[in-house]
């Protein structure tokens, strides 16, 4: 076990004060589902464990005009049951559906999922999809960090030790087609082998007028798939076209990761999962 002091501040300013002085020596616990593994294995080499799970400033899901705000302390269960997210960020809501298990969803937070910077974090593709910006605070002020810049490498977040993610600001999407799917080794309680989020709009002629796409568990840090989006925009989706776009997506992934032993599966699976997610766009 680890040797540390447990601190639970009453409000965000208190937490930021504490981190300003002790950030280097502090680990942050929100839901705890990741940090507790380190606590138990004795890998946590910090003097303090700062519990931010009860900070009201980090809670809540709201729609403020064109800003859909999701507090970093919102649990996956809250995302799962949020009607506001179901109508404005369906992919994000769906990403909570198969996230670990109910017991984990009840305490794990979206902020924790992002800060942990696991390439398999299930909320990350949907946040990318919605051009999410993380509102990050330290004692001296607030910074807006786009999702693409939240991780520097696998399991390494770009946050400084003094910072806390306060909330995510998403671009809401209504009236279009949105989906999130993941592939795991079993149907529940599985780490993503691969996940994908998509949002599509078609115009009156059946052409794709808007497409956003994000991959999970495929690249070490979140990456834009702009080339594939551009390829499909303005075109009428057909089986063949989607298949070709899926192939492009797989190539784009391999450009980033290089060929690994897992590529044998992931290359076709990316193409396949893309087809499965986008197929409802054909002919409808």
């Amino acid at each position: 076990m680890a040797d540390f002091k447990y601190i639970r501040p009453d409000n965000l300013p208190e937490a930021l004060d504490f981190l300003w002085d002790n950030g280097q020596d502090t680990a942050i616990i929100a839901g705890g589902t990741d940090v507790m593994i380190d606590v138990k294995s004795g890998k946590l080499d910090k003097k303090y464990l700062l519990d931010i799970s009860r900070l009201d400033e980090l809670k809540g899901i709201e729609l403020n005009g064109r800003d859909l705000c999701v507090g970093s302390g919102v649990t996956l269960s809250e995302i799962y049951t949020s009607a506001l997210l179901a109508s404005n960020a369906l992919a994000l809501q769906k990403s909570a559906v198969n996230f670990a298990a109910r017991q984990i969803r009840n305490i794990a937070t979206i902020g924790g999922n992002v800060a942990h910077s696991s390439p398999c974090g299930d909320t990350v593709p949907s946040l990318l999809l919605h051009d999410a910006i993380a509102l990050v605070a330290d004692k001296k002020g607030i910074q807006h960090i786009p999702m693409e810049q939240m991780a520097t490498s696998a399991y390494m977040s770009s946050l400084t030790p003094q910072q806390i993610i306060v909330k995510f600001i998403l671009t809401p999407y209504q009236d279009g087609y949105a989906d999130f799917q993941k592939i795991g080794r079993r149907k529940e309680l599985a780490i993503s082998r691969m996940s994908m989020a998509a949002f599509v709009k078609k115009d009156s002629t059946g052409r794709i007028s808007f497409l956003k796409l994000a991959l999970g568990a495929c690249t070490p840090v979140p990456c834009s798939m702009g080339a594939v989006e551009a390829f499909l925009t303005g075109k009428v989706p057909t089986r063949e076209l989607l298949w070709e776009a899926g192939g492009l997506l797989a190539e784009r992934m391999i450009e980033i990761t290089g060929n690994r032993s897992s590529t044998i599966y992931k290359k076709p699976a990316v193409q396949g999962l893309f087809m499965r997610i986008l197929f409802p766009m054909v002919g409808s």
Partner: peptide, 26 residues
């Protein structure tokens, strides 16, 4: 011990949680 099996499930304030992944102080 790592939140994978659910044998340690308890109900905290009406919600099921894995008690092995919860800090005692919480």
């Amino acid at each position: 011990g790592i939140g994978e099996c659910g044998a340690c499930t308890i109900v905290v304030d009406g919600k099921s949680v894995n008690s092995c992944l919860m800090l005692g102080a919480q």
